[in-house]
């Protein structure tokens, strides 16, 4: 299809879609008039039931803990998929980490960039742990805390040398950490089955709301998820860096595959 024809077709389709969406929106309760009932129920009973002061985390890791398990496995499966898509292709040449040619560009940043990157590592680790372990109290949680943790390790790589990075955090260790996080969260769910009545039932003493050690299994879930997220994103970045730094570019465009 020619480009102008495609635009006309899209324009007609987009106008129809927008019109239907606007029609649907007109019948929604007005902005600011939340109709309930689920949010209202959790607002009334959420804190006293879970002893978590952050109701968003209470929803994610208690009311909808089962769905969060699915969400976690989406991340797990996606990283696995990326590793498969970016696998070594037939006839593709890869440099060894540290070999000549991996020293240019991205690999050896300017001294200033390297310093800033390395200086950020400590604060990012602290920030990540802080966000993850306070997830049941204040905004945050495993997903939000895992990203700074993964970024901290990756910044250390970017600020240093790519070859050194592979030694500090070998692929296998990162994979192990990710898998341990994913399995840890599933185990928290199984604990509910073993020590209470149902999968993901909160089976640990809920303590006093607002304390660091409260809300039962929610902080444990957050720590497991943080580990999984940090590992998953680190793996993802390593896969992409390998492509950029280690795979020998082939300008001709390999038609054979």
């Amino acid at each position: 299809m020619s480009r102008p024809a495609r635009f006309w077709l899209f324009g007609a389709g987009a106008l129809a879609l927008a019109a239907m969406l606007v029609l649907a929106i007109v019948d929604l309760p007005g902005f600011g008039h939340y109709p309930g009932p689920y949010g209202d129920l959790i607002e009334q009973g959420g804190e006293s039931a879970t002893h978590a002061t952050d109701l968003v985390t209470a929803v994610n890791f208690d009311y909808r803990a089962y769905d969060t398990l699915g969400e976690e496995f989406i991340l797990f499966a996606a990283v696995l998929g990326i590793a498969i898509v970016l696998r070594d292709r037939r006839g593709e040449r890869k440099r060894a980490p540290g070999a000549p040619g991996t020293e240019g560009g991205l690999v050896r940043p300017s001294a200033a960039l390297g310093m800033v990157g390395l200086a950020m590592v400590g604060p990012l680790v602290v920030l990540g742990i802080e966000i993850a372990v306070h997830g049941h109290l204040t905004p945050g949680g495993g997903f939000q805390g895992g990203l700074p943790l993964g970024s901290a390790v990756f910044l250390a790589f970017l600020g240093g040398e790519y070859a050194a990075m592979k030694k500090v955090a070998p692929h296998a260790a990162v994979e192990l950490g990710e898998a341990a996080g994913a399995a840890g969260y599933a185990l928290v769910g199984l604990g509910g089955l073993l020590f209470a009545t149902a999968f993901f039932q909160n089976f640990i003493d809920r303590g006093e709301p607002g304390r660091l050690l409260s809300a039962g299994t929610i902080p444990l879930s957050n720590i497991a998820v943080a580990l999984e997220v940090a590992g998953a994103f680190l793996l993802l970045w390593i896969e992409f860096s390998d492509q950029a730094l280690l795979v020998v570019p082939d300008d001709s465009g390999d038609e054979e595959g």
Partner: peptide
């Protein structure tokens, strides 16, 4: 919907959709 520093009778917005946004 964070009760860390507000009284538990304060009206809060729906936490479910915020969890879904995550």
């Amino acid at each position: 919907p964070i009760y860390a520093d507000i009284s538990s009778s304060t009206p809060v917005v729906d936490p479910v959709v915020q969890a879904l946004a995550l």
